[in-house]
């Protein structure tokens, strides 16, 4: 079943910049999709479109136009892990993770004990148990990324959008993030992530979407789409894709 579908989606910013041009593809429920493309290819705009920030009638979520959903309904189906988040106020880790429960709260409702339990379990899942009362302004880069992931886990959505989840991580935190995302994927969560880390994409993705200058270059199963020719065309520089022991390596 396709959980998300795009049909001829174009988007032009008010400044006149044409970011997406007639992009069409679909995402199967339970798949893990890597969004690849050079800087300025339109990856962030595409994530914004999937999130519903640029209302588009040609995007469907679970068979219905995305624009027909209320904000909280979308929040219960799609969670976002941004590339980074600038913290100006020193919420505790638990408070910040609880923000992920907002789509389930009424207009004037505050989180319940059950919400706190879900947030606590999300923190434990990413390895931040015991730090619930710590301030979010005191986190290292790796912990910061794990916290963003914990909030999205607490959101209990069916789809997780991730904007370059490993861009600021050292190898150990990159491996930890990969392991966490593999765990979420194995439990049925649909992942859609943009990345410049092609080997991270090779390890995590079942499907690949390639964007070049706002246009769809290719979309499909990783094994069918990723090859030396496509990667070289996508990035405009010589690239190689090889398979060793069943693992795809791109460089």
């Amino acid at each position: 079943m396709n959980i998300l579908e795009l049909h001829d989606v174009s988007y032009t910013y008010p400044s006149g910049t044409e970011a997406l041009k007639e992009v069409s593809f679909s995402i199967e429920e339970g798949s893990s999709v890597a969004l690849l493309g050079s800087n300025g290819a339109g990856k962030s705009t595409l994530l914004d479109v999937l999130l519903g920030m640029h209302p588009h009638a040609s995007v469907t979520l679970c068979g219905k136009p995305l624009s027909s959903y209320g904000r909280k309904e979308v929040g219960r189906l799609i969670a976002l892990v941004p590339q980074s988040e600038h913290f100006n106020f020193s919420f505790s880790l638990l408070e910040y993770t609880l923000f992920g429960r907002s789509p389930y709260l009424g207009q004037m409702q505050s989180p319940s004990a059950l919400d706190a339990q879900i947030a606590w379990e999300a923190l434990a899942e990413v390895g931040l148990a015991g730090f619930e009362e710590r301030s979010i302004t005191s986190l290292s880069g790796g912990e910061h990324q794990l916290l963003l992931l914990a909030r999205s886990i607490a959101q209990q959505s069916r789809i997780l959008l991730l904007d370059e989840p490993t861009s600021a991580l050292d190898p150990a935190n990159r491996r930890r993030t990969l392991s966490l995302l593999k765990g979420l994927h194995s439990r049925g969560k649909t992942l859609f992530f943009s990345t410049h880390d092609v080997n991270f994409a090779a390890e995590l993705a079942t499907h690949v979407v390639m964007l070049k200058e706002g246009r769809l270059l290719a979309a499909g199963l990783k094994e069918e789409v990723v090859n030396t020719k496509m990667l070289t065309t996508l990035y405009g520089t010589e690239m190689r894709a090889q398979t060793f022991d069943g693992h795809t390596l791109m460089y």
């Binding site: 999130l51 904000r71 929040g75 799609i78 969670a79 941004p82 988040e85 992920g100 907002s102 959101q155």
Partner: peptide, 10 residues
């Protein structure tokens, strides 16, 4: 929070 994060939590 950031505008995208606020939006994504409904």
């Amino acid at each position: 929070l950031g505008e995208k994060t606020s939006f994504s939590v409904g």
